[in-house]
Every structure is written in C-alpha cells, then in structure tokens.
Simulated scan of single mutants.
Amino acid sequence: MTGLTILIIACAYLLGSVSSAIIICHIFNAPDPRTQGSGNPGATNVLRVAGKIPAILVLVFDVLKGTVMVWGAYFINLAPVELGLVAIAVCLGHIFPLFFNFSGGKGVATAFGAFLPIGLDLSALLIIVWLSILFISGYSSLAAIVTVTLAPLLTWYIKAEYALPVAMLSLLILFKHRSNLIRLLKGQEPKIKERNL
C-alpha cells in the first residue's frame, strides 16, 4: 500500500466524520438527533425530529461523502481492494465520527454512495431491492439489511472485480445493524408507519 493510498484512506475517514445530521439539525434549530427519536444521527431520524427538508439534505450529503471519496480514488487508479478500504474508511468516519465524540449513524446512505461509482445499473438494483423490502415489510432496517446482504452478489454479477470490496463494506453495515436484527427476530423493531415521523 502506497503513501498516497494511506493518505486517501485517512481523508476518507475525516470526510466521513463530518456528521451532516448533527450540523443540519443545528442549522435548522432542530433537536440533536443523538438525543431524540431513535438516537441515530442519520436521515431517517432527522426526518423524525426535524422534518423532510433537513432529512433530504442529510441524505444527499451522506451519499455524496461515499461517492466523492470512492470516485476520486477510482480515478487515481487504486486497486479494487484499496477502493474497498477507502469505502470502509468513509463509512467508519460516518459511524464513529472523530469530530462528534465518535457517535454517528449506521452508514447505509454513505455505503450506497460508495457503491455508486461501480455503476448506475448496480445502484438501480440496490434501490429497487431496498424499496421493495421496505414496501413489503414496512421495516427500514430490514430493507437495509437485505440490500447490503445482496449487494456483493449483485456486484459479482455486474462487475465481479468489485465484489470483494463491496462484501467488505457490507459486513461493516451488517455489523452496525446487529441490534436491529435482534429486535427484528424478537418482533420488537418498529415499522416506519408506527413511528412518529
């Protein structure tokens, strides 16, 4: 691994550490999402505590964090596994932000942004899977879990050389959702329509 690669990975973590949910809620004079709703500083909880516009802004920024770093790394010809490390670094920054006491979101939007440079066909399939599971089940967390589980298989079908880095990132997102999975198995996970959005 070259010094440039290490620098890019470090920059990815720092960019990931910029918590748009906390910043945007502050700008809109909304409650800190870490202390309200689910306590998760992500777009879904911002929708709950601050409304649609702040939530959309958070979603866009979080997706862009992943896209900008991975796309930039792709264009300087980093190897697929190194791209996976960049993607993991930006998601780790989002999940454990240096600038916000290491209390961050679950990384789904940022991971999706990291998947985008692989191709619009993969992105479209991931969106279809996520929306389908959400529509059928009503569980946002289940939609995320199923989508990231299928992501490596879909990537292998579309661009096999990126299946390993996608699998690396998917494992991180699944690990972050382990509490959601336990609640789902126990029947204790609330559905989107059951939450006060």
Rank of each mutant, 00 (worst) to 15 (best):
F75T: 06
R48C: 14
I53A: 07
V60T: 08
T44R: 09
V70Q: 08
V46W: 13
P54T: 07
G66N: 13
S38Y: 07
A43Q: 03
L59P: 01
A73P: 08
N40D: 06
A43D: 00
V60R: 04
L47N: 10
N45A: 04
W71K: 15
V58E: 00
P54V: 05
L47E: 10
I53D: 03
P41S: 04
G72N: 01
P54W: 01
Y74P: 01
N45I: 04
I53N: 06
V68C: 07
K52M: 13
G42H: 06
V68N: 03
P33F: 13
G51N: 10
V49W: 13
R48D: 12
T35D: 01
V68A: 11
K52S: 12
V60S: 03
R34Q: 00
M69K: 10
P33M: 07
T35I: 01
A55H: 08
M69D: 09
I53W: 09
I53C: 04
W71M: 15
G39S: 02
L57V: 14
W71P: 13
N40P: 07
F75I: 08
G72K: 00
V60K: 05
S38G: 05
T35N: 03
L59M: 06
I56T: 14
L57N: 10
V60M: 07
G39M: 03
N45F: 01
M69L: 14
L59I: 01
A55K: 08
L47P: 10
R34H: 02
Q36I: 02
P33A: 12
G42M: 05
R48A: 14
W71S: 15
N45T: 06
V46L: 12
G37F: 05
R34C: 01
A73M: 11
G42I: 07
P54D: 06
D62Q: 15
T44G: 07
T67P: 01
T35A: 03
L59H: 02
I56A: 15
V60F: 12
N40F: 02
K52V: 13
F61H: 13
R48L: 14
F61G: 13
L59F: 07
T35R: 04
N40K: 08
M69G: 09
G66Q: 11
Y74W: 09
A50K: 10
D62V: 14
T67S: 03
P41N: 04
D62G: 15
A73V: 08
D62E: 15
A43M: 10
W71C: 14
I53V: 11
V58I: 01
T35G: 01
N40T: 11
I56P: 12
G51V: 11
N40G: 06
P41H: 06
N45R: 05
G66V: 09
